[in-house]
Amino acid sequence: MPVRPRPLSPHLQIYRWTITMSMSIVHRATGIANYVGTAFLVIWLGAAAWGQGPLDVVNLVYGSWFGQLVLFLYTWSLVHHMLGGIRHFIWDFIQGMEPGQREMLAWANLVLSVVLTLAIWTIFVWVA
């Protein structure tokens, strides 16, 4: 009996790129980024516990333009990941979504994460 080759799994060249696929990848990436950002938070808390000298050094680094950029992206990562979790929760519990609703939620996740991050930084960093 001849041996039939196993079927190949579809690959990225087969699939049409969609916003939901992109947001799934970004959700995973922000989850990883949140671990790194949380390590920066732990460093800051450790420096505060260590004393004023170490805290001044960490505040100097975090207060630089690069540190502020990293903190801004960390804030966006937290917000985006949270909204992505809510989006997945909605997908899991709402039956019979109409065509286009999943894509609308994915776009809303992206836009709302940017808007909320800007609002957080405007209220707590730039204005304060």
Rank of each mutant, 00 (worst) to 15 (best):
2 P>S: 14
2 P>T: 12
4 R>N: 07
5 P>C: 05
7 P>E: 09
8 L>F: 08
10 P>N: 07
11 H>K: 10
12 L>F: 14
13 Q>K: 11
13 Q>L: 09
13 Q>C: 01
14 I>N: 14
15 Y>W: 11
15 Y>M: 04
15 Y>P: 00
16 R>S: 10
20 T>S: 09
21 M>P: 00
23 M>L: 13
24 S>D: 14
25 I>D: 06
26 V>S: 03
27 H>S: 11
28 R>L: 11
28 R>P: 00
29 A>K: 02
29 A>M: 13
30 T>W: 02
30 T>R: 01
31 G>L: 07
31 G>F: 06
32 I>C: 05
33 A>Q: 03
34 N>W: 08
34 N>I: 15
35 Y>N: 03
35 Y>G: 05
37 G>M: 04
37 G>I: 03
37 G>Y: 07
38 T>P: 00
39 A>G: 14
39 A>E: 04
41 L>D: 04
41 L>K: 03
42 V>H: 03
42 V>R: 02
42 V>I: 15
44 W>H: 06
45 L>C: 04
46 G>K: 00
47 A>N: 05
50 W>S: 13
52 Q>H: 11
52 Q>W: 10
56 D>T: 13
56 D>P: 00
57 V>A: 12
57 V>S: 10
58 V>P: 06
58 V>S: 07
58 V>C: 09
58 V>M: 13
58 V>H: 09
59 N>I: 02
63 G>D: 14
66 F>R: 09
66 F>E: 11
67 G>H: 09
68 Q>D: 04
69 L>G: 12
74 Y>C: 02
75 T>N: 08
75 T>Q: 02
75 T>S: 14
75 T>P: 01
76 W>K: 00
76 W>C: 06
77 S>T: 08
78 L>E: 01
80 H>T: 05
81 H>K: 01
81 H>C: 04
82 M>H: 01
83 L>P: 06
83 L>I: 13
85 G>F: 03
86 I>M: 14
87 R>N: 06
87 R>S: 05
87 R>E: 05
87 R>D: 06
89 F>M: 13
90 I>W: 09
91 W>H: 14
91 W>N: 11
93 F>T: 10
94 I>W: 09
94 I>S: 07
94 I>D: 01
94 I>L: 12
96 G>Q: 10
96 G>Y: 07
97 M>E: 12
99 P>L: 04
99 P>T: 06
99 P>E: 12
99 P>Y: 06
100 G>R: 05
101 Q>C: 00
103 E>W: 03
104 M>Y: 05
105 L>R: 06
107 W>E: 00
109 N>T: 12
109 N>M: 02
110 L>M: 14
111 V>H: 04
115 V>K: 01
115 V>A: 08
116 L>D: 00
116 L>A: 11
116 L>E: 02
116 L>Q: 01
116 L>C: 02
119 A>L: 15
120 I>L: 15
122 T>P: 00
123 I>T: 09
124 F>H: 07
124 F>R: 06
125 V>W: 10
126 W>V: 14
126 W>A: 14
127 V>P: 00
128 A>R: 15
128 A>V: 13
128 A>W: 12
